[in-house]
Computed example of a mutant assay.
Amino acid sequence: MVEEVLDAEERASLKTRIKTLMKEQDAVLVAHYYTSADLQDLAEETGGCVSDSLEMARFGHAHPARTLTVAGVKFMGETAKILNPEKRVLMPDLGAECSLDLACPADEFTAFCDAHPDRLSVVYANTSAEVKARADWVVTSGIAVKIVKYLHQQGHKLLWAPDRHLGEYVRRVSGADMILWQGSCVVHEAFKAEALKSLHAAHPAAAVLVHPESPESVIALADIVGSTTQLIEAVRTLPNPEFIVATDNGIFHKMHAAAPGKTLIEAPTAGEGATCVSCAHCPWMAMNGLRKLAAVLESAAVGKRSANEIHVEESVGQRARRSIQKMLDFAAAEKAGRIQLGD
């Protein structure tokens, strides 16, 4: 899947039409860091949000708009709906899936939990509403270590799903007793440690930034391991003139905006001639674009049911919201100093 290519005239025309439609439908646009620069720019131009999946949903919850348009992948739209059940949630393309979500079917995850009744289940946000509903906790990459460390200190043994690389990183850092689901992200799985070593040797002044969904051998070479938000902050604050970045290259747009004078280099994946599932850009994120966003808003006039609207069954949403709320409550308590984590 290749992102849409627009000339300046079509881009301007689409943006103008989308802005009009959003006003007519009382809509706001929330976009993930991995979507196209056009969508990220449009979100910010219209008072929307560009962020990670959790902040996208939180923003939508706080915003008064009655319609949320979510540019990202399907689980992000579902999370927005779970936290905002009273709002209409639209996506440019409901076929925009996630390899982690697809690798963890709800029925298989339920069986996994049932086979280990003595363990709490902790799932990454990159999962379906049904999986979130079955889980005890939902986490994002930015808070996973803290929550797992806390649960470990409370004496809990854990199940983790779906990303095995992130799970192994969390287990290593936290010391928790964890059984890991064996899923992986098609983008982060493709980063190559030996090629990264060679690239870093050619750019010795560069800091290596790695998302924890990457393989352990790649994480071992990192100067900073962190979530999308944390990696953007590293580019902004670290003194290095160059950065080798091991995550989806859609994030480069926001990194350039945060630190315009710095050089960003893609970490190596499978080399020249790689297929789209082994390059540094998610093929499902690439399914989003201005043309599809305009089309879904055109078809979703107020009072009409859109084929691109996210629906989550009420009882599933209630159970999933409980698991997500635990994370939100933990984050608030930890920020307020009510939770202290040991070394």
Rank of each mutant, 00 (worst) to 15 (best):
M1G: 15
E3S: 10
V5G: 09
L6G: 15
L6E: 08
L6D: 13
D7T: 11
E10I: 02
L14S: 03
T16Q: 12
T20D: 14
M22K: 06
A27S: 07
V28H: 08
L29W: 07
L29I: 12
V30I: 11
H32A: 10
Y33G: 04
S36T: 02
S36G: 09
G47F: 04
D52P: 00
A62D: 11
A65K: 01
T67Y: 10
T67I: 00
T69M: 09
V70K: 06
F75L: 03
G77L: 05
G77A: 06
T79P: 00
A80R: 01
K81H: 09
K81D: 07
L83S: 08
K87P: 00
L90I: 00
L90F: 01
M91T: 02
L94I: 06
C98M: 03
L100P: 00
D101Q: 11
L102E: 10
A103Q: 09
C104A: 07
A111D: 13
D114P: 01
A115Q: 11
D118L: 01
R119F: 08
L120P: 00
S121F: 07
V122S: 08
A125P: 00
N126C: 05
A129K: 03
V131W: 03
V139F: 08
T140D: 08
S141E: 12
I143R: 06
V145F: 07
K146V: 13
I147F: 00
Y150G: 01
L151K: 02
H152F: 09
H152P: 00
Q154L: 13
K157M: 05
K157P: 11
L158H: 11
L159M: 10
A161Q: 13
D163R: 05
E168G: 15
S174M: 00
A176W: 10
Q182M: 12
Q182A: 15
V187R: 12
E189F: 05
A190G: 03
E194Q: 04
K197E: 10
S198L: 10
A201D: 14
P204H: 02
A206M: 04
A207L: 09
L209I: 04
L209Q: 11
P212D: 14
E213Q: 03
S214H: 01
E216K: 03
A220V: 01
A220P: 00
D223G: 00
V225K: 06
G226A: 12
G226C: 05
T228V: 07
Q230D: 06
I232S: 04
E233G: 11
T237H: 02
T237G: 02
P239C: 02
P241V: 08
V245H: 01
G250H: 11
K254A: 14
M255Q: 10
P260V: 08
G261K: 08
G261N: 05
T263I: 06
T263N: 06
L264R: 04
L264N: 13
P268E: 13
G271R: 12
T275A: 10
C279S: 09
A280T: 14
A280R: 10
P283H: 08
P283V: 12
P283F: 03
M285K: 01
N288W: 06
R291S: 10
K292R: 14
L293Q: 06
A294V: 08
S299I: 13
A300Q: 08
A301I: 10
A307P: 04
E309I: 06
I310S: 11
H311R: 14
E313N: 12
F330N: 07
F330M: 05
A333W: 15
E334I: 07
K335R: 07
